[in-house]
Simulated assay, not measured.
Amino acid sequence: MRAVVVAACAALLLTGCVEKIAENRVESALLKAGLSERNAACMAERMVDRLSISQLRKLEALRGKPGEPIKPRTMRQYVERVRAVGDAEVLAVTSTSAALCATGLANESRRD
């Protein structure tokens, strides 16, 4: 019985570590895409909780179309660029994360 409890605790710790690594990578990708530190941190937390690893990798590989600036100038331009991924769930999570994080509502909803 003790071995099962130890294994369960180890699995939970490992899951937390993996999630934090994924969150850091997503935050870094969002920063490279031109988002502010505050928005990138907020959005990364929400996106890691709601998207699969393959969906997150699509976002990590996101590039602008020829002729577009390397970094979008606004959050709206970033969301439009995400639309090109062609994944409705990625677009929905990114859009709602951007809106909630830009208005500060994401942190308020966590307090409930």
Rank of each mutant, 00 (worst) to 15 (best):
R46M: 12
A8L: 15
A88Q: 12
A44P: 01
M1H: 07
D112I: 09
N107H: 01
V85Y: 02
A11C: 01
V48C: 10
E45N: 14
S95T: 15
E23R: 08
E68N: 07
A3M: 07
T94L: 06
V5E: 15
A98E: 02
I53A: 15
P72L: 12
M47N: 03
C9W: 05
K20D: 12
L105M: 14
P72A: 10
D49A: 15
M43A: 11
D49I: 01
A11M: 11
E108T: 00
T15E: 08
K71G: 09
E80M: 11
L56Q: 08
T94N: 02
V26K: 00
E68L: 11
A8F: 12
I70L: 11
C101Q: 00
R57M: 11
E45K: 13
T15S: 12
R38Q: 10
M75Q: 08
L62V: 13
C42D: 02
K65G: 00
G64P: 07
E89W: 14
L91V: 15
R111V: 11
S109T: 05
C42I: 12
A22T: 02
S54M: 11
M43P: 09
N39Q: 10
R25M: 13
L59R: 03
E45I: 07
G34E: 11
I21D: 14
N39A: 08
S52V: 03
E23T: 08
P69D: 06
R46Q: 04
K58Y: 03
A29V: 10
A7M: 11
R83K: 13
M75L: 15
C101D: 02
P72K: 02
G16Y: 06
R111M: 09
L31Q: 11
N24D: 14
A33P: 00
L14P: 00
N24I: 01
S28R: 10
K20H: 05
C42P: 09
S36P: 13
S52K: 07
G86H: 00
P69T: 02
T15H: 04
M43G: 09
L62Q: 13
R57T: 09
R83W: 00
G16S: 14
S109M: 14
L56H: 00
G86T: 02
A44S: 12
L51I: 10
A10G: 04
A8D: 14
E68R: 14
V48S: 08
A29W: 04
I21Y: 14
D49M: 04
C42Y: 03
K58C: 05
A3Y: 11
C17Q: 05
V48W: 07
N24A: 15
D49R: 11
K71A: 15
D112Q: 12
A11P: 01
K58F: 03
V4L: 10
A88E: 02
A11Y: 05
N24C: 06
A22P: 00
R2V: 13
E37D: 15
A10V: 10
A8K: 03
A29F: 03
C42T: 09
E19N: 00
R63M: 08
K71F: 07
